[in-house]
Design a protein around this nucleic acid. Structure first.
Lengths: 215, 215, 215, 215
DNA sequence: CATGAATGAGACTTCATTCAT
DNA sequence: CATGAATGAAGTCTCATTCAT
C-alpha cells in the first residue's frame, strides 16, 4: 500500500499525545490477547495484529513480550490494589476487613473477566488442568456432597467449598515452600482449623434460621 | 541347522523392558523440566535434551508436548488422589475429613516439591507473579499484621492467612465464572463467612494451651 | 506383543517360498501405494503399513524406496512389453502394426488402471497439472470444437484429439531435447504432417459413411 | 524542525521495488530448482539456498512449496497460452491451425528448456523412466526401424514417430480414464486411424520432392 | 531372516527482533 | 518515530535406515 502519508499526525503538536495513545493501544490489545490465549501462547504478532500499528512500533514502547505483560499486569493490579487497601484500612471489625476485601474482589472479577484472566495468566491454549486433575477436584466435590448428605457436614455450597479448599491447599502450599520453613504440619493445622471454624459459621448464612449444630 | 527359530529371545521381554524404561526416562525428564520451566516455556527439545535418547525417540512414545504433559500430570494426580479419597471416606467427623485431607496434601507437597510444581504448572520462564501482583499480596499481609497488632484480629500466622485468602479469592472466583452463575454477592458472602468463622477458630492452634472456644 | 513365535514358518522347508512371497507382498503393496499417492508422496512406511511385515523386513528385500519403485515399474513394463513386441513382429501391414499396439495398450490401461498410474507415476498428492496448465488444455479443446463447428475440421472427438496433440507435443519435445538436435523446425513439421494426415483419415471412422472432404 | 514528516520516502517505492525484486528472485530460483530436481524432490530449503535471501523471507511471499510452484507454472503457462490461442483463432485452414500450434510450442521448448521442464515437472531426483520403461520405448523404435527397413512403413523419423506414439498412447489413455468412459476400443480406433493417416502423409516432409499421395 | 524401537539428519515453519526507508 | 520486510535461530515433527533382540 501507499506508506507515504498515512501516519501524518492528525494535528501538529500532538506527538506526545499520540505516543501515549499508542502505548495504550498496545497495552489494551495485549490485555485482550493475553486473556484469550494466555501468556505462553500469545505472540508479539498477535498483539500488534490487534492494533492498527506496525510490528516495529511495538519495540518503540516495549522491549519484549515479557515487558508488555508486566505492564498489563501492573495496570490491572494497580487498579484494584488501592481500593482493597483503603477498605481494609477503614475496617473497624474483622467482618468488615474480610467482607470488604472479598466483596470488592469478586465484584471486580465479575465485572471484568478479561482482567481477571490476565492476572491469573496460567491459561494457555492448552488445557492446563488435565482431566485427571479436574477429576480430582470433582471427586472432592462429590465427597463433600456425600458428607453433607450423610449429615457429617452442614448444608453448604459444595462447589464453593471445594474451590475454597483447593485454593487454600495450593496457595498455602506455595507459601510454605516459599518461606523455606517447609513445616507441613503447621500448614495442615492452619488450614484445618480455618475450615473447621469456617464450616461451622457457614450454614447460618446459607440457610437463615438454621443454626449450625453439629455437636 | 535350521536357523529359522534362533530368534527366540534369550530373556523374556528385554525389548519390552527397554521400552518401559525409555518411557519412564522421558516422563521423568519431562517432570523435571516442566517443574523448572513451566509448561509454556518448555520445549520438546528441552525434554529430550534432559534424556540420553534421540529426538525422534520422543515421538515413539508421545505425540506432542501436550501428551507427555498429560502423562506427567496424570501420574502425579493419580499418586495422591486415591489416598485423599480413601481418607475422606473413612472420616467420621468434620475434623477428620478436613484434617486428613490437608495433612496428606501438605505432606505430599513438602516431600515432593517437583511434583507439586508440575501440578501447578503455571510457572514459566517469565515470572508470572509480576512485582505488582506480589506487592499486592504483601500489602495484604502487612494489612493483616497491622490488624492483628491493633487487636482487630487474634494472633494468627499472617503469612498463611494471606495465602489462604488469596487462594480462596482466586479459586472461588474461577469457580464462579465456570459455573456461569456470576453471582459475586454469593461468592463474597461465602468466602467472608468462611474466614470469619475460621479466624475465630484459629488462634487455638497458633498458641497452644488456649483451647478454641467460640461458643 | 509377544514376538516369540509368530513368525514360525507354516511348514518346514518353505523358507524359499516365504521369501518370494514376502517380496511379492512388498511389491504389491508398493504398487498400490505408488498408484494412489505418487512416488514423491509415498514413504517406505506407507508401503510396509500396507503389508503384514515389519519395517526392518523391507530392507531385506530392497535397499530403498527407489529400488522397490524400479521393481514395480519393471514388473509392469515387463508384463506388457513382450505382448506389444510380439504383435508388432507379426504385423504384415501398417494397419496391423499400429492398430495392434494401440489396442493392446489401451486394453491394458482400461483393465488395470492401477498399473497404468504406476507407470506414469507423475501424480503426487499435489495436483501437478496446475489450474493454468489444465486451462491451457481445455482452451485447446474449445478451440478445436470451435474449429469443427466452423467447418474447418471434420467432426472428430475433440477430447481425444486434444489429448493426442498434447501427448505428441510434450513427448516429441522431450525427445527433441534428449537427442540433442534441438531442431524444433523439424519437430514441428513432423508433428504437423502427422496430424494433418491423421485428421483427414479420422472422420471415416468416427462417422462411417461420411467421407472426409475438406477440399 | 519538525521531524515528524521526515519519513516521506526519498524515492517513490524503494521498498516496493525490493519486494518485487525479491519475489522474482524466489520465483526464478524456484523455476531453476524445480526444473532440475522436479517438484517432489525439491524442498523449500533448496529454493531459498538458490537465493541470497534468508529462510524466513520465503514465507513472506509464499505459504508453501506448492504455492510457489503454482506461481512458477502459472507464469510459464501464461506466457505461452495466449500466443497459441491467438494463432489458432487466426487459422484459416487445418494446416495453419495445427502447424502454428506445433511450431510455436516447439520453438518455445527449444528456446527455454528450463521452463519446459517446469511445466512437465514429472522429473524427480529419481529417474522416473526406469530402465525397463525406457527399454520398452527403444524396443518400439527398433521395431519401427525394422518395419521401415522391411518396406512396411515409408521412411520416417523413427525417433519422432516413437515419441509421438508414446505421447498419444499415454495422453489419450489418461483422457480415457478421466472422462470416465473407459471405452478403450474407441480410444484405440482413434489413435490407430490418426497414425495411419498421419504416416501416409509424413514421407512428403521427410523426403522433399515426393508428394504425399494417400488417395 | 523377522522384528520394531532408536536414531538423527533435515524438512517445514514460526516468531522475536532488527533496520533500511 | 512509524513502517513492515528481512532475518535466522529455534521449534515441531517425519522418515529412511540401522541394529539389538
Amino acid at each position: 500500500m501507499d506508506t507515504t502519508l498515512q501516519k501524518a499526525p492528525t494535528s501538529p503538536g500532538k506527538r506526545e499525545q499520540t505516543k501515549l495513545q499508542n502505548r495504550q493501544l498496545i497495552v489494551a490489545a495485549a490485555r485482550r490477547v493475553f486473556a484469550e490465549l494466555g501468556y505462553g501462547a500469545t505472540t508479539v504478532r498477535d498483539i500488534i495484529r490487534a492494533t492498527p500499528l506496525a510490528s516495529g512500533t511495538f519495540y518503540n514502547y516495549f522491549k519484549s513480550k515479557e515487558e508488555v505483560f508486566q505492564a498489563v499486569r501492573d495496570e490491572v493490579a494497580l487498579a484494584i490494589r488501592p481500593r482493597l487497601h483503603e477498605e481494609r484500612m477503614k475496617a473497624a471489625t474483622v467482618e468488615e476487613f474480610i467482607g470488604c476485601s472479598f466483596r470488592t474482589f469478586f465484584e471486580f472479577v465479575a465485572d471484568d473477566r478479561v482482567n481477571f484472566r490476565t492476572i491469573r495468566a496460567d491459561s494457555t491454549r492448552v488445557r492446563m488442568d488435565s482431566p485427571e486433575v479436574i477429576a480430582g477436584f470433582e471427586e472432592l466435590r462429590n465427597d463433600l456432597e456425600l458428607a453433607i448428605a450423610k449429615g457429617l457436614f452442614p448444608s453448604i455450597d459444595a462447589d464453593f467449598l471445594m474451590a475454597a479448599i483447593v485454593g487454600v491447599a495450593f496457595e498455602v502450599a506455595e507459601r510454605m515452600l516459599q518461606t523455606g520453613s517447609h513445616d507441613h504440619v503447621a500448614a495442615a493445622e492452619f488450614a484445618t482449623k480455618l475450615f473447621i471454624g469456617g464450616i461451622r459459621a457457614l450454614p447460618a448464612v446459607a440457610e437463615p434460621g438454621v443454626i449450625s449444630r453439629n455437636a
